[in-house]
């Protein structure tokens, strides 16, 4: 039950009720952040591998990209309150809306990624495939990072106040997961870039998370405690373990697969942690009121 009404304590506002509304997104959206990240970073890796002449790596990365984006679409549609109206996403083009921007990016990226993967797998239309891979490769980083802007562009302190770090976290996490996927799917001799990317991605992911927590200060709570905090620690462990494993013993295929899986798990859990933290932050009136009060007091 709620506390008796009269209170001098105004830090928690009105009967401790949240000031903000919690997001209405379901966990499939966190899953999409992951699959979108895999798709985005994989397409870039694939295109780079293509340019570098590493066809096997390119093939697995492009395939991962296509798979990732193929899963992403339905995930997004399923979360809509009116799924039949998903096409309304292209009704307008709004630079003020990361989701609108994302929708347009995705609508260009998805066919490109599919085409590139198709070409890479079947060997048909090689020139078109290459152009498509190029397009997807260029759009890939946008696909991997716009979702960070999407969550940051809300009123929720644990998301919004992390808007400088979240894109890096998401990009790094996408890189790590794409590298992990490639690591698992690519024969050891061709997976070198993936191993290197895994280490870089993982390191950056861990660093970005730390930087984000520092930035958030008094509203970082959800990342440290509760369910989101637990997820964050699990993600950190997976990512670190995956990177270390990949670095130390990545030349053994089963270990590479394991390292890839750990990296992907780390990335997935990171997104869930961020996702969860938003809900917890929104539910905490003090997180909304405290910083605003300080800001007002500061003038």
């Amino acid at each position: 039950m709620r506390p008796a009404p009269v209170t001098d304590e105004t830090a928690t506002g009105y009967y401790g009720n949240p000031v903000l509304k919690a997001p209405v997104w379901k966990p499939v959206i966190a899953l999409y952040f992951f699959t979108g990240g895999v798709a985005g970073a994989s397409s870039t890796l694939g295109f780079a591998a293509l340019l570098a002449g590493n066809r096997r790596l390119a093939r697995s990365a492009l395939l991962a990209s296509a798979a990732g984006i193929a899963v992403s679409g339905p995930l997004l549609v399923v979360d809509l309150g009116r799924p039949a109206r998903f096409l309304n996403m292209l009704r307008v083009a709004k630079p003020t809306s990361p989701m609108s921007v994302g929708s347009w990016i995705l609508s260009a990226f998805a066919p490109a990624s599919m085409l590139a993967a198709g070409s890479a797998v079947t060997g048909r239309l090689p020139r078109t495939g290459r152009v498509a891979a190029g397009a997807a490769g260029v759009l890939g980083p946008a696909v991997a990072t716009y979702t960070a802007v999407l969550v940051a562009d809300t009123a929720i302190p644990a998301w919004h106040d992390a808007h400088r770090e979240l894109p890096y976290l998401f990009a790094a996490s996408a890189a790590a997961s794409a590298a992990g996927t490639a690591l698992a799917l690519t024969p050891v001799p061709d997976a070198g870039p993936a191993r290197r990317l895994a280490v870089m991605g993982a390191a950056l992911e861990l660093a970005a998370f730390r930087a984000m927590e520092r930035r958030l200060g008094e509203v970082a709570g959800p990342y440290k405690e509760g369910r989101a905090g637990t997820l964050a620690r699990a993600a950190e462990a997976c990512t670190a373990a995956g990177a270390a494993l990949g670095l130390v013993a990545g030349r053994r295929r089963p270990v590479a697969v394991a390292a890839g899986a750990l990296l992907c798990a780390g990335s997935l859990i990171t997104r869930h942690s961020v996702f969860r933290a938003g809900f917890e932050s929104a539910a905490d009136p003090a997180a909304t009121i405290g910083p605003q009060r300080s800001r007002r007091a500061a003038g």
Binding site: T44, L45, A48, P141, V149, D153, A172, A179, P193
Partner: peptide, 22 residues
């Protein structure tokens, strides 16, 4: 936010390039 995203995207490209260029 978009600037940060652009930076992050570039970093991603850079990392991928670095990884593949070796």
């Amino acid at each position: 936010m978009w600037r940060a995203a652009a930076g992050a995207a570039l970093a991603l490209v850079g990392a991928v390039a670095a990884a593949c260029a070796r």
